[in-house]
Design a protein around this nucleic acid. Structure first.
Lengths: 132, 132
DNA sequence: CTGAATCCTTCAGGATACTG
DNA sequence: CAGTATCCTGAAGGATTCAG
């Protein structure tokens, strides 16, 4: 029997559907700070205040929120030492470490094309009528 | 001479600084739609309306904005055919194609850990006192 | 030291209508 | 077909203050 007109999504649509999980990845990595935190913690367990300095420019609020999110997603392990003053360490999980490795691929790409992108942008801005 | 107390950033801080370009990457890939557009256009030149259907759920406004942004960054080439009705095709640049390949690494990671992340989340939510 | 709580601003993104 | 122009909302994020 003939198919209705609502089926067979285009190849492009299928490709989008298949790469859908990448959207979830980005959810864990999205935001201004998640990656910075991941990178800062990659070297080994790191304390709250150390993170604050390492990431640079992040507010306490956002640091806390992002840490909670990453912990919830199983990217970070939070260890509290019941001392006084309190000491809390955050460490990457193996999963997060893998992610960190994968991210290196992106960094490389960025390094390689940083100049090209800047050039393309300058070119575009020069070509387009000034958006007054 | 002894160094002041303001120098020698921590290793973690240095790591963050070194991986800084990744922040720029994300700027090009950030947002809800950029990746979808990239993926949809990966198969070959694609028209505006085709993109609209392929990405799915995107508004005309956001599609236009994202296309302009990607074009400006040198990820897309916009070709106008002065016919009637108008026909416009968007094609990935080699640079964007490389990015697309790199993104596959992330997709793989997401696939592999999708379950683990969901589990970690359920675990976390079960452990934490219900945030009423 | 490590947060939680509150207030406020900004802006990505959605809905809708109009046009060459 | 391929946009542009407006209006509007929600969520991200910054600043500041309070607390165990």
């Amino acid at each position: 029997m003939s198919r209705s007109h609502t089926d067979v999504p285009s190849p492009a649509r299928q490709a989008v559907l298949e790469s859908c999980p990448i959207g979830e990845v980005l959810d864990h990595v999205a935001g201004k700070w998640s990656i910075g935190i991941l990178v800062a913690a990659a070297a080994g367990p790191i304390r709250f205040t150390e993170l604050e300095r390492a990431v640079g420019g992040i507010s306490r609020r956002m640091l806390t929120l992002n840490l909670r999110k990453l912990e919830r997603d199983g990217m970070l392990v939070r260890t509290v030492y019941p001392t006084v003053p309190p000491k809390v360490e955050y460490a990457l999980t193996p999963m997060a470490r893998e992610l960190h490795d994968t991210l290196v691929g992106l960094t490389d790409w960025a390094e390689r094309h940083r100049g090209a992108i800047a050039a393309a942008r300058a070119d575009y801005d020069a070509t387009q009528p000034a958006a007054v």
